[in-house]
Amino acid sequence: MTSTDKPYQKIPIQDCGELLIPIPAELFIFESPHPYHKLGAPYQLSPVSSPYYLRENVGDRLITANQYLQAEYPHLRILVFDAYRPIEVQQFMVDHAFQQQLKATGLTLELLSEQQRQQLWEEVYKFWASPSHDPATPPPHSTGAAVDVTLFDIVTVSVLNMGSDIDEISPRSQPDYFAESSDPTELEYHRNRQILKQVMTRAGFLQHLHEWWHFSYGDQMWAWLHNRQSTKGAIACYGRYS
């Protein structure tokens, strides 16, 4: 297995053919313009002009999760950071993540040794899926079945602090990173993450093992995570959408 291979990619796919549908803007919080748009990601090559799309059943489950959240925490809403991501955007963001990691080293590409270059790519691929064009190994977001979310407080008009930024390549992005902390602020981060996880999993989503913000339903990662918890042999019902 190479650094770009993921264990969930061995899960077979039988795409159910559901269409992408827009996530209803009146029910959720969006960031506008989208963060990847601001970086210059090539959405003009996408089947849809916006990242705020999901497969129909996945979108319905996200609405259900938001309803669960509001029933228990009326002041909170789900903020959708990212959803459908075409392969071209995946490639753009993987390259961007590598450049950010390179910048953090204080070196230039020309000064990197081959070992350093490999280490940087390994860090990137711990968090980012390879922009594979192979229909058997699509990036999760390119299926329309994965969504990156956080929580937004409509009273304070602010995003809840989760202790790390979405897309942050660091150990702090692990879902339970703050679980054993004795610091009250860090325990609040963990509580916020647990609120998000509880409403999303109640709606049928499963959480990425290394990213507190990433949830999916029906893609290869979801099936792989499901099979870790059960012996039912789930397969993916969503492949690459194009």
Rank of each mutant, 00 (worst) to 15 (best):
T4C: 00
Q14H: 14
C16P: 01
L20M: 10
L20E: 02
I21Y: 06
P22K: 12
L27G: 04
Y36M: 14
H37E: 13
L39V: 12
S46R: 04
V48I: 12
Y52D: 05
L54W: 05
N57R: 04
D60H: 11
T64G: 02
A65H: 02
Q67S: 14
Y68T: 05
Y68G: 07
L69N: 08
H75F: 11
L76S: 10
R77V: 05
I78N: 04
I78R: 02
F81H: 10
D82T: 10
I87D: 03
Q90H: 07
H96K: 15
A97G: 12
F98P: 11
Q100R: 15
Q100V: 06
T108S: 15
L109D: 14
E110T: 13
L111I: 10
E114L: 15
Q115V: 13
Q119P: 03
V124L: 13
A129P: 08
S130I: 02
S130E: 14
S132K: 06
H133D: 12
P140N: 10
H141I: 01
A145E: 00
A145R: 00
V149S: 04
V149M: 07
D153G: 11
L160R: 13
M162W: 05
I166K: 09
E168A: 15
S170F: 12
P171S: 14
S173W: 02
E180I: 09
P184N: 11
Q194P: 09
L196R: 11
A203L: 09
L209G: 06
L209R: 07
H210W: 10
H214D: 02
H214Y: 09
H214W: 05
G218V: 00
M221F: 00
T231G: 02
C237H: 03
Y238R: 04
G239K: 01
G239C: 06
Y241A: 05
Y241Q: 08
S242P: 06
